[in-house]
Amino acid sequence: MERKTERLAWVMLWLLALPMLAWAQDAAPLFDAQLVDAQDKPATLAIFRGKPLIVNFWARWCSPCRDEMPEIKLIDSQYRGRGLTVIGIAIEDNSANARDFLKAYEIDYPNFFAGSRGTELLKTLGNDKAGLPFTVFIDRQGKLIGHKLGRISRGELEAAANALLQ
């Protein structure tokens, strides 16, 4: 039964990956991007290289982003101890309003702020429309193995998390 579940997780992840422009695209632009952390200090995601990642791009004004955040938070709490890292990247500045938003949603996974540079980062990672929400899946080798434009479901997140941890 466990093998069947593993195969299903892989199938789900590959279905998510179908819209990608290139299979196993290098995620280096994500690791090199100049961001700001919650303490308003310059940051990059280089410290997360070598870890399986789910990276969610969001904004306060994005209704589907707000809708999916509780599911992403749940996946983070369920899989963090197994080695998966969940990261949020806001397509806005690190303002008091954005920090208050994260606090109100009780988001405790790492979040960074890309400001206006976030739109170009989205496009670099395969989101030609620069729409939100946008979630990418990165394996331990730093390869972008899938992405999802639009609200992501709990089932899609679980499938991706299980596949990334294989």
Score class of each variant (00 low, 15 high):
2 E>Y: 00
158 E>F: 00
65 C>V: 06
68 E>G: 06
13 L>I: 05
82 R>T: 09
27 A>K: 01
55 V>I: 08
37 D>Y: 05
69 M>A: 13
121 L>S: 08
78 Q>F: 00
76 D>H: 15
80 R>C: 08
104 A>F: 05
11 V>N: 07
24 A>Q: 13
140 R>V: 14
128 D>Y: 02
40 D>K: 12
98 A>P: 06
75 I>D: 03
90 A>W: 01
139 D>Y: 03
11 V>D: 14
124 T>G: 03
79 Y>G: 10
146 G>A: 15
10 W>S: 12
76 D>Y: 15
41 K>Q: 15
74 L>Y: 05
90 A>R: 01
157 L>C: 11
87 I>Y: 06
26 D>K: 10
71 E>C: 01
135 T>D: 12
70 P>G: 10
93 D>E: 15
63 S>A: 14
53 L>S: 09
114 A>L: 08
133 P>D: 07
162 N>P: 05
146 G>W: 00
102 L>W: 06
127 N>V: 04
49 R>S: 13
12 M>V: 13
156 E>F: 01
74 L>N: 13
40 D>W: 01
50 G>S: 09
25 Q>V: 00
63 S>N: 09
160 A>T: 09
151 R>M: 13
126 G>P: 11
61 W>M: 07
25 Q>D: 11
29 P>H: 02
125 L>E: 05
44 T>N: 14
98 A>Q: 05
141 Q>L: 13
41 K>S: 12
113 F>R: 00
71 E>H: 14
71 E>G: 11
110 P>E: 10
73 K>Q: 14
